[in-house]
């Protein structure tokens, strides 16, 4: 089963939840789709990292063949091409690599070239296969990297955890597209509720079965819990705002590998999630 872990803002606990859930399974794959700043690998410290570069296709023009008809300029929905003073200009960063301009050029003046945008890495940390994508600094879209991570690496293990980027933009949609279940991590602040709402709207739009993990729980009122109760969202578990957990985490240690209490907490969360996913597969096959 593919389980995506997401949240509206950074620092809510996506990596904490996905790293620890992956670690309490017998065997699993952890895929870090937070390609702008992947940090799951800091906890797993995977061995035998295999590296692969990822590139996209962008158009390159042969000026001798270009007749200036502008069919490519008009075709591009992202306006990645401009025709200025008898010269075609290509904006590499704006191009979404659809290849349409090349197909429609009547003069065959456009061809493809590779542009390197990042890397994918795969390694092993005890029971977990760790897959990480990293987008090069300055690149505008990590979608091609996420596509590659989710297509090439999962090798049919029972559990696949997808650590999503924060927010609700294209890269998050790409990360949850094929997920069987979405875990939303939320913190007990008003800002947290605002972000929880955004992500909740997104998973509903994608018709994904979902539930919320309340992180950093304190005594007293929890605005995120209140939101879940109002919207009738399943609360999967609660993680306390706990100094010991904070210490382990900031030392890049995996809590469930260090401490039995956390092992029990995340094992029980895993059981709850597994049951939810199985229930979903029975009711919505």
């Amino acid at each position: 089963m593919k389980i995506a872990v997401l949240s509206g803002k950074g620092g809510t606990g996506k990596t904490l939840v996905s790293v620890n859930l992956a670690s309490v399974t017998k065997e699993s794959i952890y895929i870090d789709c937070d390609i702008e700043e992947p940090n799951g690998h800091l906890f797993f410290k995977p061995k035998n990292y295999v590296l692969e570069s990822i590139s996209v296709k962008i158009p390159i023009v042969d000026e001798r063949l270009c007749s200036g008809c502008r069919i490519c300029v008009d075709f591009c929905k992202f306006n990645a091409l401009a025709f200025i003073i008898n010269k075609l200009i290509v904006f590499d960063d704006v191009c979404h690599s659809c290849g349409g301009c090349i197909v429609f050029c009547p003069e065959k003046a456009l061809s493809e070239k590779d542009k390197l945008i990042g890397i994918a890495q795969c390694g092993v940390s005890e029971n977990v296969t760790v897959v990480t994508g990293t987008l090069n600094v300055g690149e505008s879209s990590g979608v091609p990297i996420i596509k590659k991570l989710l297509k090439d690496f999962p090798l049919g293990k029972e559990f696949i955890f997808i650590d999503c980027p924060p927010g609700s933009a294209c890269i998050v949609m790409e990360s949850i597209k094929d997920a069987d279940y979405c875990i939303i991590v939320a913190e007990p602040t008003l800002f947290g509720v605002h972000n929880l709402n955004m992500v909740y709207e997104l998973v509903k739009l994608f018709n994904k079965p979902n539930g919320v993990v309340l992180n950093k729980c304190l005594e007293g009122e929890n605005p995120s819990e209140k939101f879940c109760l109002e919207k009738d969202i399943r609360i999967l578990g609660r993680i306390p705002f706990d100094q010991e957990l904070g210490k382990l985490n900031s030392n890049a240690l995996i809590a469930v590998r260090e401490n039995q209490t956390y092992r029990d907490l995340f094992s029980s969360l895993l059981q709850t999630v597994t049951k939810e996913v199985q229930h979903e597969t029975v009711t919505n096959p």
Partner: peptide, 18 residues
Amino acid sequence: SAVASQGGAGIKAAQTIV
């Protein structure tokens, strides 16, 4: 015509100006 572009509005708008 670039006002509702998905992206690259500035490029298309500049093309119009040119």
